[in-house]
Amino acid sequence: MTRSVWFLLVLLAISASSCKEEVDECEANTHPYQLQFPDYFPILEVPSDNPLTEEGVQLGRRLYYDPLLSTGGPREGRSCSSCHFQSNSFSVPSTASGSSVLPHVNLAWSRNFLWNGKLEGILEDVMLFEVNDFFEVDFNLLKEDAVYPELFRKAFGSCEITDELVAKALAQWFRRLKSSNSKFDSYLKGEEQLTDSELNGMTTFFTEKGDCFHCHGIPLMTNNEFHNIGLDSIYDPTVKDRSYISGSPYDRLKFKTPTLRNVELTSPYMHDGRFVTLEEVVEHYNSQVKRSMTIDPIMTKPGKEYGLQLTEEEKQNLVAFLKTLTDWEFVNDTSLSSPF
């Protein structure tokens, strides 16, 4: 054999092995993650190109709690968790950011996001917005980081760190933020009884008496649609309600129905945080509903034109029922808290 052939063979062997190594280097190493929820929950739709994995969920969790995501951007120094506290069902007890902070709970089943529905679609789309437009993440910082490249490789089999992969990891984490273990859930499963007061409040909630269920129905306690519940009667064009997005005058004064899961922990209430206590919220529905063109017919239905007209006791019972929607396991689960 001539020397040149030998040379070629060696070269071939080297390039073959280096090629193999390159593939190995970026290979994913994932374990499927099984999300548990009661069978009365809606079917969970997960995009086929982003299945839930242990590695993806853990990566999303780390990103959520890491201020590195905001470094150099308009929200420098913050992480998602700076405005979304686990103890408050991943919302915040203040309106410092200009509007009431929506909780991160069961958003896997949501299709409309933010109070006015500015974001639509699946979590991957929403997270892409949060990463690129809200935080303006500098991906070089993640690439230069000591741990992220390895975590992205394991979770996604990628040597690259792109906005899409950051969004995918966060989307997996948001699917993991599932709450279905409240006292009310135990009651639905026949494992726990409610008190007389809670039962009485539940009846008001789920019958024409209170008619709350139309918008806050089981199991998610939100219909994920937009309504005007009569907080204001005069349209203020500086308030970015649903009509700001849709352009339709029929959407004026409308906002997304928030979930009532963990509502005890998500004060202040309403898009602008105008109410501090659940008693104030109930009093709104009871006697302070203001009429306007777009008010939901449920608010002014026959016999309830002047509010629900509940007795003091009935109002207290309704609040007692709302508090059965708190999932203490969810807010205390250490596998949902900061990994740092």
Partner: peptide, 20 residues
């Protein structure tokens, strides 16, 4: 009967409360 139809978001959006 609630739960009888597949729990799609469409069907859960149409639930009529047990109490009614």
């Amino acid at each position: 009967v609630y739960g009888n139809l597949p729990n799609t978001s469409y069907n859960t959006g149409m639930v009529w409360p047990e109490q009614m």
